[in-house]
Nucleic acid binder design. Structure first.
Length: 834
RNA sequence: GGGCAAUUAGCUCAGUUGGUUAGAGCGCUACCUCGACACGGUAGAGGUCACAAGUUCGAAUCUUGUAUUGCCCACCA
């Protein structure tokens, strides 16, 4: 074919748009359920749309996975790559409330849901646009949202299935509670913060009026004290066992008991148990069947049980109680301590315990099974598995899935007020909202005349998010979905490390319960994109550094506009799997350089290939000059290495090898050597020139293929411009991953002579300040040990002249070492070039 | 307090199963506008591989300990 002349100043934006149109039109990213190709299905995080503040870190983590997906597609897999959007939960609820100034009590859930869906669709659009402009090869027909009918149906089916398997129970127990949002929380919703607190030594008394000193940071819980404990092996207090302790300020007597959990060394070795200060209190309360005297209400105020402190906020009550204790002489010591407090991850308010009837999924009984599943799963990188194991080991509570919120997936059930019976929805009716929908007919018949009330709590968001593989596989069996359970278990889960304890764990647990299998075979854990200081990129970074044109260096759109999507993608592959990546704008710029360089390589190759016809003019590899054979061999090695890396999801090492090869071996060495074959007055034969064309043609095709997963746009454009290299594909991205040519390269030593000569000449030129391109009069060679080397050097004379860009070779006296034993060189410039 | 990871050039990072003189990019110095590319090329300066001990003929690499950083976990009330 006649290769076109490529523009020297390529417009990357135009190229990217052109590619996107091609990909959309040809639907090459779509999942094909009929395909016989091996399946590669990906479970990727549904981003939280309402809290959208997109930054380079998002672009990074999604791109890292997508590079793998592009590779797998080229390896001949049938790709299932859906994108979901998470619009469930508190942030959406608050956003919609504020935006529409809604009083939730005056609206119905379905109306509110409609608004949420509307808002989140807007957010989803922003994401979709970004993902598209980044070149993510998502099948957009597979889009889902965590509040759509499919997801609600799946979540409710999950509830029914767990119920039927006896894995659910409803209990009125102390639960972790967020007093700010007034809702229950699960263990995974907690965070720990460090803060300074005061520890008070407070005097209780035994029945004889002898002091019993306990240490506490929470004196406001004293009215809720229901017992005092010491370690059974603590001799100091053994005579107290079975006695009573008098609680200061309050006219209460509580039993004195023992517990192994008490640390004798801590404080006086005595501790109070309150309903409820922490999980340990709950445990002691349960084990010893202690009284219940709740002093903190769900809204974070003191209850009636707190006597005169009733109605005060917790912190306020603490202050007052401390003052009163001091005045009455009950405080015998105090000190400032560093304390770790569990807080709700959204409210950052310390969690309390309250008693509310809640639904729980039984987790604690299944720890061993989860650990086994964690082992079965293949982790990339492997050390991330430990994080899940530790989390499972440390689980203390069953999973509370009830949330006292307005918005979310409703529980599919009603209660019978008179009997307390639970009426479950029929699966055929899902999704339902018990507030708005009628209970099943059988229930209405059975409980005729009784009061049936809906469950008003909603399922917590992870209850839905934990089902993404089953949502995607249409486990719910809804009409109109392209894919079914044939994609299950999925091949790969992609996510960041901070949600191992939530998303990963819950998804695994659910899959285990519902299907008795893992939800996916492999998991790939990404790190975070960090700012230059190594901190999380914050909303503040995005606001603070935005200039008057709306440009912000952390904003993916800004970066794409300035450097191109391929450049940003290339940057994303900089960090090793699972590692964080510090953002530096210049690194994105480096990506752009590679894109432009590759474009220019194509220009060069096109120019020299002219109207090369690969079908009729290709020279057999073994008949080509040593440089050509060497290059093809180097590409073979590179290909083998990259393929091996990709199979381990190691996009970073694959990229690095490719980068190094491209810049040094290909551009600096090979192209510089091969160029002269096309110049006038060369000693190269016509066949050698055809060899060069053959090699340029083949190597450019290979390069474009190897670069394709990283920089899909520019590679596609080159591929198309090159007439697809005569292949029958609509796109480079559905072409076959380059195959290795298994010829044997046997001229490595010859090539060393050429390369070492080239390097020596460069060094000499630099030392003598002769331009690298300037023609030389003579290349002087001195072969000191004769024999084979001399034969080799003579055989390679044309190559050596090319390497030196000299007019003639002179065998004489030279004293610049080449690094080849016995070969020294010198150069003689033309007289007019001094 | 426990765990996981990291610590290599001024900065960001590679360094494959232990094997000559530890690499790249950016930045820096000097030179080169030569027929793809100055978003380029060539040469160069710059590192006691966090520290200490050990294993070994040989350690950035393996072992142990220490320090620092990041993340995760934890009931010291």
């Amino acid at each position: 074919m006649k290769f076109p002349e490529l523009d020297s100043g390529v417009d990357l934006t135009e190229v990217e748009e052109k590619c996107r149109t091609l990909w959309d039109d040809t639907k090459i990213h779509d999942y094909n359920p009929e395909s016989k190709k091996p399946l590669f299905s990906v479970d990727t995080p549904p981003p939280y749309v309402s809290a959208a503040h997109l930054h380079a870190g998002h672009a990074m983590s999604y791109t890292q996975a997508e590079i793998i997906i592009r590779y797998k597609r080229m390896q001949g897999h049938n790709i299932f790559y859906p994108m979901g959007f998470d619009d469930n939960g508190l942030p959406t609820e608050r956003y919609v409330e504020q935006k529409y100034k809604i009083n939730k009590k005056k609206t119905t859930r379905s109306e509110f849901r409609a608004l949420c869906i509307e808002e989140t669709q807007k957010g989803a659009k922003t994401y979709e646009e970004l993902w598209r402009s980044l070149g993510l090869s998502v099948d957009w027909d597979l889009k889902y949202s965590t509040i759509d009918d499919l997801s609600r149906h799946t979540a409710q089916k999950s509830f029914l299935d767990l119920h039927s398997k006896g894995l659910l129970y409803r209990a009125n127990e102390p639960v972790l509670w967020d007093t700010h949002f007034e809702t229950a929380l699960a263990q995974a919703d907690l965070e720990t913060i460090s803060r300074k607190g005061k520890m008070y030594d407070i005097r209780f008394e035994d029945s004889d009026g002898n002091p019993l000193i306990i240490s506490t940071t929470r004196p406001e819980l004293i009215p809720g004290c229901v017992g005092m404990f010491f370690n059974p092996s603590d001799q100091r207090y053994s005579k107290l066992e079975g006695g009573k302790a008098k609680v200061p300020l309050f006219d209460i007597e509580v039993p004195i008991l023992t517990s192994d959990e008490v640390d004798q060394e801590f404080g006086t070795g005595l501790m109070m148990c309150c309903t409820f200060g922490d999980g340990e209190d709950v445990k002691k309360w349960k084990e010893n069947k202690l009284e219940t005297r709740l002093v903190i209400s769900p809204d974070g105020k003191m209850t009636e049980a707190a006597g005169k402190y009733e109605g005060m906020q917790i912190a306020e009550a603490r202050k007052h109680i401390v003052t009163d204790l001091q005045e009455a002489g009950f405080i015998v010591g105090e000190k400032t301590v560093e304390q770790n407090v569990s807080v709700g991850e959204r409210s950052e308010v310390p969690v309390e315990f309250v008693m509310e009837p809640q639904w729980f999924i039984n987790l604690l009984k299944h720890k061993d099974e989860f650990l086994k599943r964690a082992d079965e799963l293949e982790w990339f990188p492997a050390h991330m598995k430990v994080r899940l194991q530790h989390w499972v080991d440390g689980l203390k509570y069953d999973w509370n899935i009830s949330r006292q919120r307005f918005y979310g997936v409703p529980f599919p059930l009603w209660y019978v007020e008179e009997t307390g019976d639970v009426i479950l929805a029929d699966e055929a009716d899902l999704p339902i909202d018990p507030i708005e929908d009628e209970p099943p007919q059988w229930a209405k018949d059975k409980y005729k005349g009784m009061t049936i009330v809906p469950e008003t709590d909603v399922l917590e968001t992870w209850m839905t998010s934990s089902l993404t593989p089953l949502i995607n596989a249409n486990w719910a069996g809804r009409e109109g979905r392209k894919a079914g359970m044939e994609i299950y278990p999925m091949t790969l889960r992609v996510q960041a490390f901070e949600i191992i304890r939530t998303w990963l764990f819950y998804t695994m647990a659910k899959s285990h319960f519902h299907t008795g299998s893992l939800p996916w075979k492999n998991v790939m854990i990404s790190g975070w994109g960090l700012n230059e200081q190594g901190k999380k990129i914050s909303k503040r970074d995005l606001e603070k550094f935005t200039d008057e044109n709306g440009y912000n260096r952390y904003d993916p759109y800004s970066l794409i506009k300035k450097y191109g999507a391929d450049a940003l993608r290339y940057w994303a592959a900089n960090s090793q799997l699972g590692r964080d990546l510090r953002f530096h704008e210049k690194d994105v710029k480096d990506g752009r350089k590679v894109v432009i360089k590759l474009w220019n390589v194509a220009r060069l190759a096109f120019m020299y290939m002219e109207d090369f016809d690969a079908n009729t003019q290709t020279v057999p590899v073994h008949e080509r000059p040593v440089e050509d054979q060497w290059l093809l061999n180097e590409i073979n090695k590179l290909n083998a290495k990259m393929t091996e890396c990709f199979e381990k999801y190691d996009y970073a090492t694959a990229k690095e090898s490719l980068h190094k090869f491209f810049w040094i071996t290909y551009c600096d060495d090979y192209l510089e050597l091969v160029k002269t074959r096309f110049w006038e007055n060369t000693n190269w034969s016509e066949k050698d020139i055809l060899s060069a064309k053959s090699t340029l043609y083949e190597s450019l095709r290979l390069l474009v293929g190897l670069f394709a997963p990283f920089i899909p746009h520019v590679t596609e454009e080159i591929y198309q411009q090159a007439g697809k290299f005569g292949e029958d594909n609509v796109s480079l991205h559905v072409s076959k991953w380059p195959e290795r040519n298994d010829f044997k390269f046997e001229l490595a030593e010859d090539m060393q002579v050429i390369l070492k000569t080239l390097y020596a000449v460069r060094k000499l030129r630099s030392e003598r300040q002769i331009g690298q391109g300037a023609r030389l009069d003579k290349l002087v060679l001195q072969v000191s040990n004769g024999g084979d080397l001399e034969t080799t050097v003579k055989k390679l004379d044309t190559s050596l002249l090319s390497a030196a860009r000299a007019d003639q070779i002179d065998f004489g006296s030279a004293n610049v070492e080449t690094g080849i034993d016995g070969l020294a060189i010198d150069i003689v410039p033309h007289k007019d070039v001094s």
